[in-house]
Amino acid sequence: MAIVLENVSKSFGKKKALKNINLSFEKGRIYGLLGPNGSGKSTMLKLMTGLTFPTNGTVTLNGHPVTRKSSEQVAYLTELDMFYDVFTVRETVNYMASQFADFNIEKAKELLQELTLDPTQKVRSLSKGNRGRLKLVTTLSRDTDAILLDEPFSGLDPMVRDSIINSLLKYIDFENQVLIIATHEITEIESLLDEAIAIHYGTVIGQESVETLREEQGLSVLQWFKQISREQGEG
């Protein structure tokens, strides 16, 4: 699996959300799209799922341009709430299974157990943490080439974050999948990443291997991110 963005720009009306982005993502690796709110991270993920299309440039999955059907190959966790309140946890899982041919119901059951979600509980009565967990269950249960997570930790307490990271590490199929996590919470995922990509007002201002950063510059991802953001501000 490879996702490639070539000279991609995206405008919403007069506002330029992304400017001339060139990136590629390979299977077996975990990427962090890092940037503050409004930097264009979510737009970038939506371009990869075929939920929106570039104003200029091309986005390809395994060499084919992204279309509306690309969601068959890409599992996407949105930052928005995506469930029906009247469903139970089990009904939600079954509903997702009915929508996606690649949905692995066995994996979903394991994940529900792993994350201690009660299948009989109504979505409406789930705590925020458990909603976050359920979103992860339905996303990770798909046997897709790519898994895209948009702010998977936002508003969740440290215990929930840990359990999410744990499940990611257990259930990602590293032989076949690429994982891309968009977040502004850098410290949480630092040790998880192969590569960090810094985004600032719609442009990529840096891309580094996390271990190389430490080895060659003695910097954590957060330190690096702050440094290059500051340079942007000055320049």
Binding site: L169, K170, F174, L192, L193
Partner: peptide, 17 residues
């Protein structure tokens, strides 16, 4: 490698190294 990655909360590629 996978178990160690989960225990440490790090990327499996890191444990591989």
């Amino acid at each position: 490698v996978r178990e160690m990655a989960v225990q440490m909360g790090v990327n499996p590629n890191t444990v591989q190294r």
